[in-house]
Amino acid sequence: MTVKPKVAFYWCASCGGCEETVVDLGARVLDVVAAVDIVFWPCALDFKTADLAALADGAISVAFVNGAVRTSEQAHMAELLRRKAACVIAFGACACHGGIPALANLTSRERILQRSYHASPTVDNPAGTEPRESTTIDGHRLNLPAFADTVHKLSDVIAVDYSMPGCPPTPDNLWQAVNLILTGKLPPRGAVLGSVKSLCSSCPRNDSRPDDPTIPKIRRLIDVVVDPATCLLAQGLVCMGPATRDGCGARCIEGNMPCTGCYGPAADVQDQGARMVSALGTILQNDAGDQGTAALDDPAGTFYRYTMAASLLGAERKDV
């Protein structure tokens, strides 16, 4: 009897959507379970860190790690998984590029604590208590993970073998990856498991793009009745599709919503946001002036929604 490959799933700083992808495999999840041994999946099954630590180094064939890394616990788990797994896959936008949690890099640790524990209107904290890494009460010591200055993508913390972007990656993406693993057809280490092109290549609206794509100004979704057949960029909406890796199946576009960029930059691009800004600059009419971009309330959150931890912008404070 052949030994089934051991697989681990873990989440760091993330919303749980990536875990949902595994569940969304539907009936196929049974095939996965039949083909592999899931040895660690705290979100769904009752495993403890000690179970993981007890495994021999390199015993896990593949660890799917989602989420960004900010706390000392996340960093510790990432390192532990790295030790135990022969292959680590950064699974989902947060692990690949920082994702939504990395938008916190636009502010500081102090301001986050200030807001969350003092200033927020819903906070009632008369004693001004803040979380501490170590607290002793009645002789008992309570330890909390350290809260770092910066949110990191997984590859900042440990060596990552493959990346699978997406918020979350689709079940099909996962299914394909599992098949690559089972058939031993994984590409060379370091690869992104996905397309090298951008979303426009598979966009059902690609043909509708006008020859002259210039737009007088950027418009917000709430300001327009979105034409369901025409290129969203040509309608003045910030569709991140041109600067975003293909692979999602254009689900948002099919839902008549612009791409928000969750699959990160295309293959040869370092900074997705800068690329998109540069591209938009070329299609905004020359005389658009400030009005052209007046509707862009949140440029960083628009162009770097999922990639702040991987961006050239860096962070307000970087503790690398």
């Binding site: 951008s198 290549s201 794509p213 295309a266 040869d268």
Partner: peptide, 11 residues
Amino acid sequence: DLCAGCRLCKA
């Protein structure tokens, strides 16, 4: 291999 045919360069 990388071009997605978005045609922004053409514009």
